[in-house]
Design a protein around this nucleic acid. Structure first.
Ligand SMILES: [Mn+2]
Ligand SMILES: [Mn+2]
Ligand SMILES: [Zn+2]
Ligand SMILES: [Zn+2]
Lengths: 144, 144
DNA sequence: TATCTAATTGTAATTCAGTCTCAATTGCAA
DNA sequence: TTGCAATTGAGACTGAATTACAATTAGATA
């Protein structure tokens, strides 16, 4: 069992929930997926590998992985599908997304992070998470 | 006709579209609403005022107001409803949202804005818009 | 290890925001 | 006026997500 699996198992246990084979399969695949994904992508990948996990179970499991901070909901795209992003063991980062080709740059700017904290302090607000997404055109797409 | 109405009328005209009574009613109400709203809120408000505009027409009109930069899609909340926010004539700002009571602070930090620009330059990326939302607990809700 | 039970699963039905179809209406240019 | 493309409202439809329910099962306990 790797760190993610241990973390999730402990989390489930602390809530009187079970580390079922289905949850293990889903978690393992999520950890293998390095990047952004949605329910259907995950379902098809599992299917191709011969795992039979129902969509309902995936829909039930992903929110619990979010609560356990193993994944998070990612920036919504134009189509109205919930996208997820693996975060456990990854550093926080923000996104720059090309409107035209969909290319995504991930970045983190410590000064921006710091300024956000200062801003929150000013409102006596306790930040838990934040999301910064910049949309526009990548180098390729801006000419053309 | 105020600035918003003129802007929208010209926009529609430039696309061979009509400044219909329904669109006028919707626009007028949107301009009157100072803040965040969704389709149903708008529909009910119009209803109460005796205006009979169908939900379908509202669903059709709001995206065109977005394209005309009179409103924009606001931060999504927990429920999966598209929220809009009036922007025409308002300065850009970002959001701090209380997870518990829903309180929203609007802020703008010029340094953060500048740092975003610099970051984009580094990727030779041309930013068009961005969204920064900080979620956490407001002063009231952090104790309690 | 066998027993027991609350948690979990898959299936299929359901929800519901948002989109689309279509016949009737209307704004507006000529 | 007239003509016609754009628009409207009603209601059907879509599809992601949720839920009910009966069957199954993880895993705590004895
Ligand atoms: Mn950040
Ligand atoms: Mn900003
Ligand atoms: Zn691009
Ligand atoms: Zn609060």
């Amino acid at each position: 069992m790797n760190d993610g699996e241990i973390k999730y198992k402990n989390y489930l246990h602390s809530k009187g929930q079970k580390f079922t084979p289905e949850r293990q399969i889903i978690l393992k695949e999520v950890l293998a997926l390095a990047h952004h994904f949605d329910v259907d992508e995950l379902y098809e990948r599992l299917r191709r590998k011969g795992h039979r996990v129902s969509r309902a179970t995936i829909y039930r499991t992903l929110p619990s992985l979010v609560e356990n901070k193993i994944i998070k909901e990612a920036v919504r795209c134009q189509d109205n599908i919930t996208k997820y992003e693996y975060i456990f063991g990854h550093d926080h980062h923000d996104h720059i997304v090309c409107i035209k080709c969909g290319k995504i740059y991930e970045f983190k700017n410590e000064q921006i992070e710091k300024l956000q904290e200062i801003t929150c302090k000013g409102y006596k607000f306790k930040p838990v998470e934040h999301r910064l997404g910049i949309r526009g055109y990548c180098q390729k797409c801006r000419r053309g």
